[in-house]
């Protein structure tokens, strides 16, 4: 447990880092923008270089906002799943949400190639992919929710989530096998994740979805604190375990599902970040852990995004590889540090 002053200091420090990274994420990229011009555009909206404003408003800010909100959403949903399943290796995708989304995209991208002559994915447009991903992860969500209302044991739900995930992956493999090269590449690129493909118009859907999911989670802080000591105890303290579980799954699906639909399956943030927050804040109380995880999620994903666009070069690395390369050492460190990772 840290003292109140230590917490206060941490919040200030982390917010500062978050803001700095956000600004750097806007400044750094394939086209080098002068530092002060960027600040001027962000804070006053005026500039002598209209082309800079276009780059910033059309590309950099949407991307930085996407990174920020994806970081919030994935890390928070990961924390919820670790708490509910009392399993340190659970993440936002244990319910099969990303598998559902990838099935949707695979059906769209590769399924189409077998029926039509459309050979350019661009024709389908971003929205189509988003809708396909959302619909299929929504389908998985309803399956999981329906099961969770009937099944008592939380471990059964975990196993069913993994089974759903494996089943959809199997279908995706079959689709991949029968699809042509260009479609296959389009799908593979989608699975690598991308923060840059979200337009301003799409942000107007993405951000409200994430905000609603986060609000829901903040309403569930009390329930999460009770669930962390086990469902029996939670129930004996007067918690409606089933409806709380339902709401937690709903918010996780909203958070992880929206991000996956727009950005593809971005891995490791959801598993690794809650552990960082636990280690730094040294508490299990979700009142602190939840905002802490959120802020660290934003920091880690903004940082990964800055690295992925290789400042100074005109190439961008797939974000999924960067989050994995950032996330894996953290997970390994955690495992080695406390040899026995018990329940979260």
């Amino acid at each position: 447990m840290l003292s109140k002053r230590q917490y206060f200091f941490l919040w200030i420090l982390l917010s500062f880092i978050l803001i700095v990274l956000f600004i750097f994420d806007i400044i750094l990229g394939s086209v080098r923008l002068p530092f002060f011009d960027v600040l001027k555009i962000i804070f006053t909206g005026q500039t002598d270089h209209p082309e800079y404003a276009t780059i910033i408003y059309k590309f950099r800010i949407p991307k930085a906002l996407t990174a920020l909100f994806a970081g919030f959403a994935l890390s928070v949903s990961g924390l919820q799943m670790q708490t509910v399943f009392k399993n340190p290796l659970a993440g936002p995708y244990v319910l099969g949400i990303s598998a559902g989304a990838s099935l949707g995209v695979a059906l769209l991208v590769m399924g189409l190639s077998t029926f039509t002559v459309v050979s350019q994915v661009g024709v389908l447009g971003n929205w189509t992919i988003v809708l396909a991903a959302w619909m299929c992860s929504g389908l998985i969500l309803f399956l999981i929710l329906a099961v969770s209302m009937r099944v008592k044991d939380i471990m059964t739900i975990l196993i069913l989530g993994i089974m759903f995930g494996s089943a959809t992956s199997a279908v995706v493999s079959i689709l991949q096998y029968f699809s042509n090269e260009s479609m296959l590449k389009a799908f593979i690129v989608w699975t690598m994740g991308s923060l840059g493909g979200v337009s301003l118009a799409q942000l107007k859907v993405l951000i409200p979805s994430v905000v609603i999911g986060l609000l829901l989670t903040f309403l569930l802080i009390k329930a999460l604190n009770a669930m962390m000591v086990g469902e029996n105890y939670a129930k004996s303290m007067g918690l409606n375990v089933r409806s709380s579980r339902f709401l937690i799954f709903l918010s996780t699906s909203l958070l992880a599902g929206s991000i996956t639909a727009f950005c593809g399956p971005i891995g490791f943030i959801g598993i690794a970040v809650p552990h960082i927050a636990r280690m730094v804040f040294k508490t299990a109380n979700h009142k602190i852990l939840l905002p802490g995880t959120m802020i660290f999620g934003g920091i880690v994903l903004l940082f990964s995004d800055i690295i992925s666009q290789l400042p100074g070069y005109d190439k961008t690395l797939p974000i999924n590889s960067i989050t994995a390369l950032v996330g894996i050492p953290i997970v390994i460190w955690i495992i080695i540090r406390n040899q026995k990772i018990t329940a979260v």
Partner: peptide, 17 residues
């Protein structure tokens, strides 16, 4: 109950649920 970083006070105060 074996939760990492859960303080005794926080656990007991859960009783106030």
């Amino acid at each position: 109950v074996n939760v990492n970083n859960l303080s005794v006070f926080d656990l007991v105060s859960l009783g106030r649920f």
